[in-house]
């Protein structure tokens, strides 16, 4: 049977502008630029809001036609507010349209509690034919980001990060876990590796549950 082919875009939400100094009694934590660029997103951002924002942007950039050809299959499969990461699924034929729309976005959608639009940059860091590869990339990048943040905070002498992350545990994160390439791998297509593995994974999960 012919399956509907998708592309999975792994998106990082980055915050290029420094956070506004809040007038609280506590002194603001001193964190390196690296960490404030990757700061967590508000919990109010839901997958539905994000999909709607993407749809609106496609409508703005590509009009009714672009909106029409991309609307089937457009879905946010995964959204982690803590790491500001999302996996967006879209149809394979028009993934570049969705990608360009993400690139043209300049701020988060209006959140229920927020009165101002928060500027952000959506960076697509991986285009994958299967959700499994995208998930593996999320984990790899998460590990690398923690290591990098630790290094940056050590270099800049910022203490705020140790408060946030806790003291480093030996052996929990090592360079070997990351593979040889670190973060520099960038975006690539898994053209040949086009199986939709997430279905299989779910089946495996169900089988395990039955065994239990």
């Amino acid at each position: 049977m012919v399956r509907i082919k998708h592309r999975y875009l792994l998106v990082n939400i980055l915050y290029p502008e420094p956070p506004k100094p809040q007038s609280t009694a506590r002194a603001p934590l001193q964190v390196p630029d690296l960490v404030s660029i990757h700061q967590p997103t508000s919990d109010d951002l839901t997958p539905q809001l994000l999909v709607k924002a993407i749809r609106d942007q496609i409508l703005l950039m590509y009009g009714d036609y672009g909106s029409g050809v991309t609307t089937t299959g457009l879905l946010v499969k995964y959204l982690s507010a803590a790491t500001s990461t999302a996996i967006v699924r879209c149809a394979r034929a028009n993934y570049q349209v969705v990608w360009a729309a993400l690139t043209y976005m300049t701020h988060l959608p209006r959140l229920p509690g927020g009165e101002k639009l928060q500027p952000c940059v959506m960076q697509v860091v991986r285009v994958s034919g299967t959700i499994r590869k995208a998930e593996e990339e999320v984990i790899r990048r998460g590990r690398a980001a923690i290591l990098k943040a630790r290094r940056a905070s050590r270099n800049e002498g910022a203490t705020g990060l140790d408060v946030a992350l806790g003291p480093a545990k030996e052996g929990m994160l090592s360079e070997q876990l990351l593979g040889d390439e670190g973060l520099e791998r960038g975006v690539e297509d898994d053209e040949e590796d086009d199986d939709d593995d997430d279905d299989d994974d779910e089946e495996d999960q169900e089988a395990m549950d039955e065994n239990d």
């Binding site: 690139t103 940059v121 697509v124």
Partner: peptide
């Protein structure tokens, strides 16, 4: 002019394809 207008290199490549 602002950091907000910068995009990642691969995003720029995609814009160029467009």
């Amino acid at each position: 002019q602002r950091a907000l207008a910068c995009r990642g290199p691969w995003d720029v490549v995609n814009l160029g394809i467009g």
